[in-house]
Design a protein around this nucleic acid. Structure first.
Lengths: 152, 152
DNA sequence: AGTGAAAGTCAACTGTA
DNA sequence: TACAGTTGACTTTCACT
């Protein structure tokens, strides 16, 4: 689907706060409540809006330690790739896993309590996955920017 | 604040779908509607739930190209650091910027339309920021896993 | 695509245990 | 900390422009 200026503004507003009422949105967009309602439904039905979620502050739930892990597989046999991707997806500590270009095959975003929890995660979970060749971890010192809002 | 089993379950539910009604949540948690309401308010007031947002599918808004950029500063003078972090934060294409340990200083998550848009971003925006020493980019070939839900 | 008004549903507040 | 009942506000539908 295509987006006019109002759709774009609406998506930006909803990406920053999905708990606004249609009335509030209608004021910001100079539209009627019903028009806002129908535009939102259209965005939902077309799969543009994937889902609505609550974002939790990691510091409040003892998950302040974030690390990015590079992973190289030992061999790039399809069977190994499929199995690795399946197993890594099942790890709750892994919030993101990207297959990437470059020296390593994968980049993982891992969230745990502290360095000790990260050590445990590496030893007991990640490196227990078969076919991993090598890993290289980077620790997040500070979070400069972090948003889920895609610029439209 | 501390969390009992119900709080944890509630946070998981809301992190996956924040549009459920309190009645639906009350069924899943075997609790009354009011109890659910009060628990949610407590989580919001304590800052555990940071905000509610709509998640947009990047493929639907022509932002299918994701890259991770390593960045090294030319010098680690505080003034340079502050200015770099400020300028990079203002770039809408940069969804995340992490100050990290290791060979490079920063890891950025960048989202644009395609490789050509990425080239433009690099040439016209990113490398125009002062005090950047070197960069190294990795392109996302496929997204194996991506969630905003922190395991509680 | 847009609007205003009607109908149904929910969030939010009150009382009480 | 939990519950049930009340009320105003909201979402959703409908008839119409």
């Amino acid at each position: 689907m295509t987006f006019d200026a109002i759709d774009k503004k609406l998506l930006q507003l909803l990406q920053n706060d999905s708990k606004q009422t249609n009335k509030e949105l209608s004021n910001k967009l100079n539209l009627s409540v019903t028009a806002v309602f129908e535009r939102i439904k259209k965005l939902e039905n077309n799969g543009v809006i994937n889902k609505y979620v609550a974002l939790v502050k990691k510091e409040k739930v003892e998950k302040s330690f974030v690390a990015f892990c590079h992973i190289k597989l030992s061999q790039h046999i399809q069977e190994y790739v499929v199995q690795f991707e399946k197993e890594v997806t099942n790890l709750t500590e892994v919030l993101e896993c990207h297959h990437i270009s470059g020296d390593y095959d994968y980049l993982l975003k891992v969230m745990v309590k502290d360095m000790e929890a990260f050590r445990e995660f590496m030893v007991e979970k990640l490196t227990n996955i078969n076919h991993i060749g090598s890993t290289h971890s980077m620790f997040v010192i500070s979070e400069v920017k972090s948003t889920t809002a895609i610029p439209i």
